[in-house]
Amino acid sequence: MACALGMDAFSVSLGMGMLGLRLRQIFRIGVVIGMFHIIMPLLGIIAGRLLSSYFGMIANLIGGGLLLLIGLQMIVSAFKSEDEPAIKPVGFGLIIFALSVSVDSFSAGLSLGMLGAKTIVAVGLIGFMSMLLSWLGLIMGAKFQNLVGSYGEVLGGFILLGFGVKLILP
């Protein structure tokens, strides 16, 4: 399960990596995504033990909506004359990005909470794998961005849009 949730973060990180990030930014982004992949399933486990699986669908809708918003902002900013993208993976933008890629971990946490999984082991593995795979996706996206030039941000935006739609639609 940790690999599956991490692969989702990897895929979305490919798109964000096309913003031309520095290694220090890539490191921070991966750490924050890893932390969110610990916090979200932990909250899901707690909620899963207390509530029904109704929140799983709501979490997917929220995550999908956030990815759509980020993807649209990346595409729009690519066509503006400014050099700066509309959303940057720093500060509040980083929190929104990390939240959007970790919302599916909340749903997984709901299931784990209902099944009575070992909390520390589960969330630790999910966070660690998500951090590693996010780093890999960000680095690969940055390398790919060098190959596609100015169209990298548009391509990254469409990747994020695709994953947003995937989360929203069944």
Rank of each mutant, 00 (worst) to 15 (best):
A2N: 05
L132T: 15
G6M: 14
S130G: 12
S53R: 05
G71N: 07
Q145I: 01
L51N: 02
Q25D: 13
F55G: 11
M131Y: 12
L66N: 07
G34C: 06
G44D: 03
M35T: 12
L155G: 04
G56K: 09
K166V: 05
L21K: 03
G162D: 09
I120C: 00
L99Y: 10
R49I: 01
A122D: 00
G109F: 04
G30I: 04
G30Q: 05
I168K: 04
E153S: 10
G156T: 02
I58F: 08
G63D: 08
P89H: 02
I168W: 12
V101T: 08
L67E: 04
L42P: 01
M114F: 02
N146Q: 15
A9Y: 04
L21Y: 07
D104I: 14
I126R: 00
G44A: 11
G48R: 01
P170E: 10
M114N: 03
I58S: 10
M18A: 00
S134F: 14
K166I: 10
V32L: 14
E84L: 09
F79D: 00
M7R: 03
G65K: 08
L50N: 06
V101M: 06
L21G: 08
S13W: 11
V76T: 08
Y54D: 11
A78P: 00
F144Q: 05
K118V: 12
V121P: 00
G149F: 13
S13F: 03
M129H: 09
L21M: 04
D104R: 12
S53W: 04
G34H: 13
S52R: 02
L99H: 06
V101R: 02
S150G: 07
L138W: 12
L5E: 10
G44F: 06
F79K: 02
F128M: 13
A78T: 00
L99P: 00
A142C: 15
F97E: 05
G156A: 06
A142W: 14
L42C: 12
L72C: 11
D83R: 12
V32C: 08
I38H: 00
R24S: 15
N146G: 12
L138M: 14
G93F: 14
P170S: 09
I46L: 03
K143W: 07
G6Y: 13
R24H: 03
L132Y: 15
G113S: 07
I38A: 15
L169M: 13
L167N: 13
A78C: 08
